[in-house]
Write a protein that binds this DNA or RNA. Sequence first.
DNA 1: CGCTTGAAGTAGTCATAGACAACAATGTAG
DNA 2: CTACATTGTTGTCTATGACTACTTCAAGCG
Lengths: 228, 228
Amino acid sequence: MTLPVHDPATTDPAPSPRPIERPRAGDDTDADGERRYHHGNLRTALLEQAELTVRERGAQQLSLRELARDIGVSHGAPRRHFPDRQALLDALAQAGFARLGAELRAAVDGAGDEFEARLRATAAAYIRFATHDAALLELMFAGKRRAESGTLHDAAARAFSVLLELIDQGQADGALDRRTPDRIGLVLFATIQGIAALVTGGMIELDRLDELVADSIAQFLRGSRPTA
Amino acid sequence: MTLPVHDPATTDPAPSPRPIERPRAGDDTDADGERRYHHGNLRTALLEQAELTVRERGAQQLSLRELARDIGVSHGAPRRHFPDRQALLDALAQAGFARLGAELRAAVDGAGDEFEARLRATAAAYIRFATHDAALLELMFAGKRRAESGTLHDAAARAFSVLLELIDQGQADGALDRRTPDRIGLVLFATIQGIAALVTGGMIELDRLDELVADSIAQFLRGSRPTA
DNA sequence: CGCTTGAAGTAGTCATAGACAACAATGTAG
DNA sequence: CTACATTGTTGTCTATGACTACTTCAAGCG
């Protein structure tokens, strides 16, 4: 994700003295304690605050006006960056896919060279994401259904490319049969996402989660190995 | 696609012989041309109309006031039956679990005596529900997370008891290993729900769905059979 | 150096939603 | 027949998302 870090704070030694009184205790002043007309990176601030709110209270409870209040801008300001509420949610989902993809990638890269170890690490990373950001994951999947947004689709595809590469390795190692990688990948993806769905849906006690992940991966491997 | 099977007796204790009238705005008279003060079974009418709206536009777009308008009652009337919007959604989810459970049960009962045939029929029924009522299924899972509503939990458990019974048979037939049924069931449940999540999330083309279901069931069976 | 221009933010307004309270109509128990 | 509990109606309050017009401000240009 590219973040335009345009921060005029360092080049604003003489800010205009606008004595707008803000009763709320939010940090709506810059480093000099002066209110600034232009926020500088409202878009980023909105996304960050929105991610916090979604994590704590879910996407349904996300309000553009409350977001603006928390950040300390007027209720119309977010509109300059997101034409409507859904656009903000889509951007949030897209950032979520980027982060998920990065975490999956990191899990693979940090798990050595062996296929099974990598697979387990990847699954664990996915489930970790699902437990820590259940509402965000739900949002990511919900956003996909509604509008087939091309950019969102691409973001998702990039995030899940890690799985496909893993499958390739598994086949090269002889651990997986020779169906097309995306066919095997779909089964793996469904398995992992299913566990995530049980987690986000609260339909499984968290202390049974590790066992479920281990069982599912083991069964996936047993079910996918070449028929000798 | 399957027919929208409507079973009016799912969740309603009030049997009223009154024919359901067209909910057109302005048509606030019954068959005799008489305006009626009491609707007669508003609760059922609300749930039915809500299910239609959810199916067409998703739970997010469901509005109590619009519901009331469609049915032809005042905007405050729904409050007598559902204290707030969430209560209506919870009731909808509960009815959804009841219907899902019934459809799973019917699938099992109509698939002969063999374990594998029953398993495939059950999975197919679940996926059918997921494709036809994607938004409702999402609502059912979302509702679970938010409040651990006891009645909702029970409704879900009843719906999925079919799976557990199936596992029992599979073990008795020697098709499944001897782990505890709920441990195997969790894996199966996750697998099926994962496919459903891909469907409701629009992350799979529907013409690849049958293949995915077949692959997943086959791999589940291969991965769960006793180690000879 | 001042002017123009356009991006970013502010303020006001509108329609609609959910929640709530007071009141009215209706069915029912006694 | 009357008292009471249900169920529905009407009005109101607050909040939200979406829209418009105006303001601030930085950067480019003549």
